[in-house]
């Protein structure tokens, strides 16, 4: 069974009289252990697509199956728990909880659902992994963009999800930080986690075993990873 099965997923927005199709009959199968990059310009429907994958947005038509579970008919609470336990999501932009320390930001998802035990060990381990153990007691406002992005990735991984999904994780970073973040994804992938990232940069090239291109709401497989726009 595929980890993620997307079938004819469509999202239409009404803009007055007109209907705007953000995502247009997209189908995609993701097997466990894959590293998928989706590239495309701004407004091509990438974020809408991701939001439907994670159950944050209801599609107009089509379906998403996560490990055989249809998201369409899942009650909101179950969807929340699925998102919490099995999907590690790195939203676009700065998504820090400013009132919490870096360490607590990473630990937080563990406590959003009822769980026994202590996650501090894993949180420390993850911060070590992303190279930010020394900043654990800092607050988000004291960190740089690249450091924050690594915090969000650690946070997304704290509940040991099946898949890590990141929305434009390098868009607002300088070249060096962007490269570090991409290296990090690569390492995470090597530990067995399925990774799906969406970006409009070409940073993603050279990473991942599949590269897809999104254009005007349609998704197409790039045959050659070297020439995505060819």
């Amino acid at each position: 069974m595929m980890l993620l099965e997307v079938d004819q997923l469509t999202k239409e927005y009404r803009r007055g009289e007109n209907t705007f199709t953000a995502v247009d009959h997209v189908s995609l199968s993701v097997a466990a252990g894959e590293f998928i990059s989706i590239i495309g310009r701004s407004g091509s429907g990438k974020s809408t697509f991701l939001n439907m994958l994670t159950g944050l947005l209801k599609p107009t038509s089509g379906s998403v199956f996560f490990d055989g579970i249809s998201l369409e008919n899942l009650p909101d609470d179950d969807l929340s728990r699925l998102r919490n336990a099995r999907i590690g999501y790195v939203p676009q932009g700065v998504s820090a909880l400013a009132n919490f320390s870096v360490f607590d930001n990473v630990r937080l998802p563990f406590f959003l659902d009822k769980r026994e035990g202590d996650i501090s060990g894993r949180a420390s381990f993850l911060l070590e992994e992303v190279g930010l153990q020394h900043l654990a007691d800092m607050y988000p406002a004291q960190l740089s963009g690249g450091e924050l992005r690594r915090v969000f990735i650690a946070r997304a991984l704290v509940n040991s999800p099946d898949i890590l999904i990141a929305d434009e994780p390098t868009s607002d970073l300088d070249v060096k930080s962007a490269a570090e973040v991409m290296q990090l994804f690569s390492r995470i992938h090597q530990t067995g986690t399925t990774v799906l990232i969406v970006t409009h940069e070409l940073d993603a090239l050279g990473f991942g075993n599949r590269v897809l291109k999104m254009d005007s709401g349609r998704l197409a497989e790039c045959l050659s990873a070297e020439a995505p726009f060819g």
């Binding site: 609470d77 929340s80 728990r81 699925l82 919490n84 998504s95 998802p109 959003l112 659902d113």
Partner: peptide, 15 residues
């Protein structure tokens, strides 16, 4: 945005 983030990270509406 803060509340949305809790939801994105998997908090239920009740939480």
């Amino acid at each position: 945005k803060e509340f949305s983030l809790y939801r994105v990270l998997g908090a239920t509406k009740g939480k």
